[in-house]
């Protein structure tokens, strides 16, 4: 009750220097814990630092990272998170497989899937902008997508067949495609959020929707753009995964929703919005992939791995909360 008081104690007209530093503290904490983890991983895990293993980690982090980065604007704008991540990315994956299977050229299929996903995302964005609870809206959209794909495929695995794109699971200049897309996409979305008018407005709406409204910033426009960016990320993730595996089904990408939210939280993006940067979500995804990889190499059971992943999220959220409280207290 006393923490966020307007006339906080002890601050003279000169104010306190601590606040801004605390705001920048979290990324440092996150990077430091990543460094500690990597060192620990090297100590206890044979082969951890091999090129193959590191590349595997990044490749595994890439899909989660792309979607987490894409969801960052939604979260930053104060619309919390989507609970339909798995189903949406799966729909994109199945859609791409089917289009390639029909013999569509790669570029057309890529374009169609992105356009389709953006359309689906915009519908959700419109509903959220109209005041529907974003968590429930995305959950419902996910259920509809899953049900529809499930009915249309009859539970069957859909395949690309011989038309499978050669670039699927491939490399560009020695860099695996997923990692390249992750890096470029993260850069683009991070710049969008930090250097564009709509990005700034997204963060301000998340920081305080009422103040944003008084300042003439449109919540609807911000929400629509956030959902559009999110949809592009979902489409990219689905397409990359589809191209790499050449097949998909309604049950594909199980657990992606949790991993993406975990990456976002571990990356230190405020769940209530208004603070954080998309690159942090990518960092969170890598951090989780490192932990997950260490556990696989050290023979943790799947249940154990999930439990530890959950524990990491809880630890991160508690830590972030502490940092924020300290900042509020000055």
């Amino acid at each position: 009750m006393t923490a966020p008081r307007a006339d906080a104690p002890a601050a003279g007209q000169a104010g306190r220097p601590g606040g801004a530093e605390a705001a920048r503290l979290w990324p440092i904490v996150a990077l430091a814990s990543l460094a500690v983890l990597v060192i620990a991983a090297m100590a206890v895990t044979p082969n951890f630092l091999s090129v193959e293993n590191l590349r595997g980690i990044l490749r595994n982090a890439a899909i989660v990272g792309i979607v987490a980065v894409a969801m960052a604007p939604v979260t930053l704008s104060g619309s919390f998170v989507s609970l339909g991540v798995t189903q949406s990315a799966m729909a994109a994956m199945v859609g791409f497989v089917v289009l390639i299977g029909w013999g569509w050229p790669d570029w057309l299929a890529v374009g169609a899937v992105i356009a389709g996903m953006v359309a689906i995302g915009m519908v959700q964005g419109v509903l959220v902008a109209a005041g529907l609870n974003p968590v429930i809206t995305t959950l419902a959209a996910g259920a509809i997508l899953f049900g529809t794909v499930s009915e249309l495929t009859g539970g069957r695995i859909v395949r690309m067949g011989p038309a499978r794109p050669a670039w699927g699971g491939g490399e560009v200049l020695g860099i695996p495609l997923e990692i390249l897309v992750l890096v470029l996409f993260t850069g683009a979305v991070t710049l969008l959020m930090s250097r564009s008018v709509i990005g700034r407005q997204t963060i301000l709406v998340g920081a305080n929707r009422a103040t944003a409204a008084v300042s003439g910033i449109s919540h609807a426009r911000v929400t629509l753009v956030a959902f559009a960016v999110f949809s592009v990320g979902l489409a990219l993730a689905g397409i990359l995964n589809a191209a790499a595996f050449g097949e998909a089904m309604a049950n594909s990408l199980t657990g992606l929703t949790f991993s993406v939210i975990a990456a976002l939280l571990v990356g230190g993006i405020a769940i209530q919005g208004g603070a954080g940067s998309p690159w942090q979500a990518a960092a969170g995804a890598v951090l989780i992939a490192v932990i997950s990889n260490m556990m696989v190499l050290n023979d943790f059971s799947p249940g154990g791995r999930l439990a530890v992943q959950g524990a990491v999220v809880v630890a991160a959220v508690v830590l972030i909360d502490q940092v924020r409280r300290r900042r509020a207290r000055g």
Binding site: N53, G56, I57, N60, F245, N251, T254, S292, L297, P302
Partner: peptide, 23 residues
């Protein structure tokens, strides 16, 4: 013996960790 993979994604995730180790 590694436990758990049951889909292409989880097979890939676990495989890409285990295979470098036993390459």
């Amino acid at each position: 013996t590694e436990f758990g993979p049951n889909s292409p994604e989880s097979g890939y995730e676990i495989g890409s960790a285990v295979i470098p180790r036993f390459k």
